[in-house]
Amino acid sequence: MYTTVLLILSVLLPIALAWKTLHVWKKIVLRLQWQCQRDLQSELLRNLISRMQVTHDVQQQSHHKIMSYILPRLPRYISERAVTEQEVDDFLRYTATLQVIAQEPLLTLTQRFVNEHTTVRKNYRRPEDYDTVKEHELFRQYYRDVQMLWKEQQNALF
């Protein structure tokens, strides 16, 4: 009787071990496939984005990117009546021209605004913490700085 049991065991045991190991192997290959796909996809997207970029200089790219912080907040500031539409229009005109004719001063101003605004934003935990007064004050300060820089440049040009 023991013999029969041991015989059956000696066939079933290797089959069970091999089954489990093949299962693990299949999982590993699936994971490798998924990683390959992810790497390929990210490589392709990076290639696509680098074709769309105007410059491959990293510093220039970061100079261009900095306005991405401010542009999405403009509609909110308009609706909260911190600035009027005409003022935002002028603001965009000043920023666009200054970005070409006086890039470094504009960058300093914008960097300062972004840093101050990030400090204010860090204390937000819930949607009710949105401090309208401080945000508007910061943005109006930045707007005044930009306007001042623009006037200086106008006087320097003409």
């Binding site: 984005i49 769309m52 970029q53 105007v54 790219q61 261009h64 990117k65 306005m67 991405s68 542009l71 965009l92 005109r93 920023t95 666009a96 021209t97 200054l98 970005q99 070409v100 004719i101 040009l157």
Partner: peptide
């Protein structure tokens, strides 16, 4: 702009740069 330093061309260049970089940054 390099050929003739026109303020309007400067503004146009700045606006195109803003548009371009904002959208690419957002999409990325």
């Amino acid at each position: 702009y390099a050929a003739n330093r026109d303020v309007q061309v400067a503004e146009a260049l700045g606006l195109v740069t803003l548009l371009h970089s904002h959208f690419i940054h957002g999409a990325e």
